[in-house]
Computed example of a mutant assay.
Amino acid sequence: MKILKLVVPVVFLFLGMVFTANSQEKSNNKDDVFVIVDEMPEYPGGDEALRKDIANSVKYPEDAVKKGVQGKVYVTFVVDENGKVSDTKIARGVDPSLDKEAMRVMNELKTWTPGKQKGEPVKVSYTVPINFALNSGDSKEKSHSKVNEKGDVVFFIVEDMPEFPGGDEALRQFIATNVKYPEDAKKNGIAGKVYISFVVDENGKVADTKVARGVDPSLDKEALRVVNLSPTWKPGKQRGEAVKVQYTVPISFALN
Score class of each variant (00 low, 15 high):
L15N: 13
L15Q: 13
G16H: 04
M17V: 09
V18K: 12
F19E: 07
F19W: 11
T20H: 12
T20Y: 11
A21V: 09
A21Q: 12
N22E: 15
N22Q: 08
S23L: 08
S23Y: 08
S23Q: 09
Q24F: 10
Q24W: 09
K26C: 03
K26A: 07
S27F: 01
S27L: 06
S27C: 06
N28I: 09
N28C: 05
N29I: 09
N29E: 06
N29K: 13
N29Y: 09
K30S: 15
K30N: 10
D31L: 04
D32W: 00
D32M: 00
V33Q: 00
F34T: 07
F34N: 07
F34D: 03
F34Y: 14
V35L: 08
V35S: 13
I36Q: 11
I36A: 11
V37D: 01
V37I: 09
V37E: 02
D38C: 05
D38M: 04
D38H: 06
E39S: 11
M40Q: 12
M40T: 12
P41V: 07
E42W: 05
E42T: 14
Y43R: 07
P44V: 15
P44A: 15
P44G: 13
P44T: 15
G45R: 12
G45E: 05
G45K: 12
G45M: 05
G46F: 04
D47M: 14
E48W: 05
E48M: 14
L50D: 01
L50R: 02
R51C: 03
R51K: 09
K52C: 03
K52F: 02
K52D: 12
D53M: 07
D53W: 07
I54K: 01
I54Y: 00
I54M: 08
S57E: 13
V58Y: 02
V58D: 03
V58A: 01
Y60W: 05
Y60P: 03
P61I: 04
E62H: 10
E62G: 03
D63A: 10
D63G: 05
A64P: 00
A64I: 04
V65M: 07
G71P: 01
K72T: 15
K72F: 06
V73G: 01
V73T: 12
V75Q: 06
V75R: 04
V75L: 06
T76S: 15
T76I: 12
T76W: 12
F77M: 09
F77L: 10
V78A: 03
V78G: 02
V78S: 03
V78P: 02
V79Y: 01
